[in-house]
Computed example of a mutant assay.
Amino acid sequence: MELAFVRLVGGGDRLYLVGGVGRDGISRSLRLWELVEGKLDGNTRYWDELRRLPEMMYQKFVSVCYHNYSHVHCL
């Protein structure tokens, strides 16, 4: 699996990543990650997956954008 598209979103003092995960540039699922500090070492950061868009909602999303991710805007 690879990222088909990504968008960075800021919220307060947090940073989120919204991305389509799939193969060959075609997204098969939409996921949300948050950049968090490591629990053992405050200097280490990693992307923690928070949510995945439910399959039925994702199918609606794909039918609207038809794999043209330049029109995907995240707030």
Rank of each mutant, 00 (worst) to 15 (best):
V36N: 01
M56W: 04
M56Q: 13
V21R: 13
A4F: 02
Y46L: 15
V72A: 10
G11W: 06
M56L: 15
L17Q: 11
F5L: 00
W47H: 12
K39G: 13
L3M: 13
E49N: 12
R45E: 10
G42K: 14
F61E: 01
M1D: 07
G20F: 02
R31T: 04
T44C: 04
V62T: 08
L50W: 03
V18H: 05
G20K: 08
R14M: 07
D48M: 12
L40A: 14
H73R: 15
F61W: 08
L17V: 02
A4H: 04
V21E: 15
E34D: 02
W33S: 07
G10N: 11
L17E: 05
G10V: 06
L75V: 11
H71R: 09
C65F: 13
S63C: 07
L32P: 00
Y69R: 07
Y16I: 06
V36T: 07
K60Y: 14
Y16V: 05
Y69M: 06
K60N: 14
M56F: 03
E37W: 06
Y69S: 05
Y58R: 00
V64N: 03
G11Q: 11
L75I: 10
T44K: 08
L15H: 06
G11M: 13
R51K: 12
L50I: 15
F61D: 02
R52A: 08
V6K: 15
V64R: 08
D13F: 01
Y69Q: 06
L53H: 01
L15C: 09
G42S: 15
L50A: 09
L3V: 13
V62F: 01
F5N: 01
S63Y: 00
N43L: 13
L30T: 03
E2S: 10
Y46M: 13
M1R: 01
G12F: 11
E34A: 09
G12K: 07
V72E: 08
L35D: 03
S29W: 00
G25P: 04
A4I: 08
L75Y: 10
H71F: 11
C74Y: 00
K60I: 10
R28M: 06
L32W: 06
G42C: 10
H67T: 04
H71I: 13
L40S: 13
H71G: 03
V18E: 04
R14A: 14
L17D: 00
L3R: 15
M1Q: 04
L40G: 12
S29K: 10
E49S: 09
D24H: 12
E37T: 07
E55V: 09
V9L: 12
G38F: 03
R52C: 04
I26N: 04
R51C: 12
C74L: 04
L8Q: 11
S27I: 01
E49G: 05
M57K: 09
G19D: 03
Q59D: 10
Y66F: 11
L50D: 05
L75R: 08
S70R: 14
G22K: 06
Q59N: 09
R52W: 00
L40Y: 08
R14S: 14
L75P: 03
W47M: 11
L75K: 12
V21I: 14
C65G: 02
N43R: 14
V6A: 14
V9R: 15
C74M: 15
V9H: 15
N43A: 10
R51I: 00
